[in-house]
Amino acid sequence: MMRRLLLPALLTLAAAACSPRKTVGYGGEIIPVTDTILRTGGSDTIRFGRMHEGEIAAKRIVFDNRSPRSFVVTSYEVSCHCTELAFDNQPVIPGEGLRATVTFDARGERGWQMKLMKVYFSGSREPLRLFIEADVE
């Protein structure tokens, strides 16, 4: 009887130990922030997919700290006022994540759109470049 109870528990623990680390409970698209990104910058893409002209869409993202040091999002810049980043300005310790929301406003936009958002972290020289992509009908 003990073996029947113990075997499923051991298999579950082994599967969890072998699977790659996941950010659980944050919700949203994960943007890894590594030590390299904090030192030299990097880039990623957030895809909104197909939208209608005039629609405003928001996407949850998580800046997942995969660096051995803490960071803070200090500021951001956008290439167009149709994009916005909302976040809490709090330190993110290694292994934790910072929830944020990226908003894209398709009012006045038509066709394929590619916008640039630069996110600056404490202690970094170069920003993380987030390319915001949408196809507006």
Rank of each mutant, 00 (worst) to 15 (best):
I93Y: 07
L6T: 12
E126V: 09
V24Y: 14
F71A: 00
L11F: 07
I46S: 07
I56F: 04
I61Q: 12
R47D: 13
S75W: 10
G27S: 11
R129F: 04
R47Q: 09
L98Q: 09
R99D: 07
A58L: 06
Y26W: 08
L10N: 15
L6C: 07
N89K: 14
M114E: 15
F131M: 14
E29G: 00
L85F: 06
P32V: 04
G95I: 06
F63T: 04
I61G: 08
I56C: 04
L6P: 02
P8A: 02
A16Y: 05
E53A: 15
R60N: 11
A134Y: 05
L11R: 06
E133D: 09
E126W: 08
V73M: 01
R125V: 11
A58D: 05
P94L: 02
A57L: 10
A106I: 00
F131P: 03
G42H: 02
K22N: 12
A17C: 13
C18F: 13
S79A: 00
E84C: 13
L10E: 14
V102G: 01
Q113V: 11
K59T: 05
T12M: 00
E77P: 00
I93G: 10
M117T: 07
A58Y: 10
G108A: 15
S124A: 13
E55V: 02
G123F: 14
S124I: 05
A17H: 11
S19H: 09
A17L: 12
V119A: 03
R39I: 04
A14C: 02
K118M: 13
E137A: 14
R50K: 12
K118V: 00
R110Y: 08
I61C: 12
A58N: 05
G54A: 05
S70L: 06
M2C: 05
V73F: 06
T103S: 14
L11Q: 01
T45L: 07
F48T: 02
G123A: 06
Q113C: 11
I93R: 11
S124D: 01
S19A: 15
E109H: 14
A134N: 05
T40M: 13
V73S: 00
E133F: 05
I30F: 00
Y120N: 10
Y26L: 12
D35G: 04
S43T: 09
G42I: 10
S79N: 03
L38F: 12
Y120S: 00
I61V: 14
G28Q: 08
Q90C: 01
S70A: 15
T74F: 11
R110N: 14
G49P: 10
R39D: 13
C80D: 15
Q113D: 06
R47G: 05
T101N: 03
S124E: 01
I31F: 11
P91H: 07
R99K: 13
T74Y: 03
S67H: 03
Q90D: 03
V136A: 03
R107L: 08
L38I: 07
S79L: 04
H52C: 10
F131Y: 13
G123Y: 04
R99G: 06
L5P: 13
G27Q: 13
F121L: 06
R47C: 07
Y76K: 11
Q113Y: 07
F87V: 01
P8W: 00
R39S: 09
L130N: 04
A134I: 01
V62T: 02
G95T: 08
G54F: 05
A17N: 00
C82Q: 13
S70T: 08
I132Y: 02
L38N: 06
I46Q: 08
P32I: 08
G54D: 08
E29R: 01
S67I: 07
R107C: 07
